[in-house]
Design a protein around this nucleic acid. Structure first.
Lengths: 192, 192
DNA sequence: ATAGCCATGTAACCAGTTACATGATTGA
DNA sequence: TCAATCATGTAACTGGTTACATGGCTAT
């Protein structure tokens, strides 16, 4: 139940409409927390009912009116309280690994193609993160300090994507070889 | 909607009861797909209604009767069909990263303690994986070949846990320093 | 014309979680 | 006596997804 906290963090960084928030879920926090426009609008409604956010109607002549949300004092308090509670570690759901686990139950070419496809997706992901990192360092020190939090999540994403690429490469090599390794791969790759 | 496929893969590896499956979700596939006993029993019921699995009642004198499930021919076909369909990449939900993203909104000590707590959890996770890897290599080559799929998922898990530890260490260091890095960390850590 | 963007919403459904229930056996 | 393990299940609820709806503006 952290969707609301993702939204509160986003709104505290910068007020915005449901539509704005939805788009922000395509990057930044979106790299590790996903939400559809339905979830955003409904959660905003709940947050408003609970008086954790408020909005100003922003009439626009050429486009639909916007509800620009921001935190209330109670919202800020709720967010601070959440920061002090422990979050439970996430429960992973990696469907691709179910396939890899059951590698013996399918034909190798289909699985190899699927692994390669995912590897490619992670390469693109990694490229996006690297570009974002480059942009981060193009800023002055004051701005870098302000965005230290987002930068640190970016670093997590870089390691995540990079290691998927490594793992999928390894998996493809060993599956192609059709035989298990004789011993743990030495060095960093062995988990040491 | 891959819970059913996780169950089908598990049952194809070895028939078992709902209770068995539930326990198997504590390791192996459980390292990357979680399920409660409710989900298991209800999914088994659905799979049975759809005639993808069948069961034999195993009466036991001292303990409750077990329903020992296994795949039907249709179940095996459904599983093979799934292996040929692409799986969508997972939508991550990492609540801890919401906190890290919003680091500026809370006091450092609370956040640092939370990061350290998670780092510790990942250290324990990594230790489990390493032990499992050790056991894998203690087996003969034929058995290693049979369990190549599970081994490869273990490798993914090792990289995953190891990198969380690295990322959380880095985050704690930079947050403690109270200042952003001057330039990307050189070498492998920089995303290269 | 056709599609896409901006901006919001209702309704139905499905997946996942939590609480509650049963009942025998084993070990502290 | 109390808790844990084995083994299964019903019921209520919450969170998340998909489909459908509106309506003007802009670009091809």
């Amino acid at each position: 139940m952290s969707l609301r906290h993702a939204i509160l963090v986003m709104l505290e960084a910068k007020p915005g409409s449901g539509y704005d928030l939805r788009r922000r879920f395509d990057s930044g926090i979106g790299n590790f927390w996903y939400a559809t426009h339905q979830q955003v609008y409904q959660e905003l409604k709940k947050l408003h009912d609970e008086k954790l956010v408020e909005f100003k109607l922003q009439a626009q002549s050429d486009r639909p009116d916007r509800k620009v949300y921001r935190l209330t004092r109670a919202g800020r308090a709720a967010l601070k309280a959440w920061f002090r509670e422990p979050v439970e570690p996430p429960r992973l759901k990696q469907a691709l690994l179910i396939k890899l686990f059951g590698a013996a139950l399918t034909d190798a070419p289909a699985l190899l193609a699927e692994l390669e496809r995912h590897e490619q997706l992670h390469r693109e992901e990694l490229a996006r993160y690297r570009e974002a990192e480059r942009q981060y360092f193009a800023q002055d020190e004051l701005t870098r300090h302000e965005f230290l939090g987002p930068y640190l999540t970016l670093r997590c994403g870089i390691r995540y994507a990079r290691d998927w690429i490594e793992s999928l490469q390894e998996a493809r090599e060993l599956l192609r070889a059709g035989a298990p390794p004789r011993a743990p791969v030495p060095g960093r790759g062995a988990g040491g």
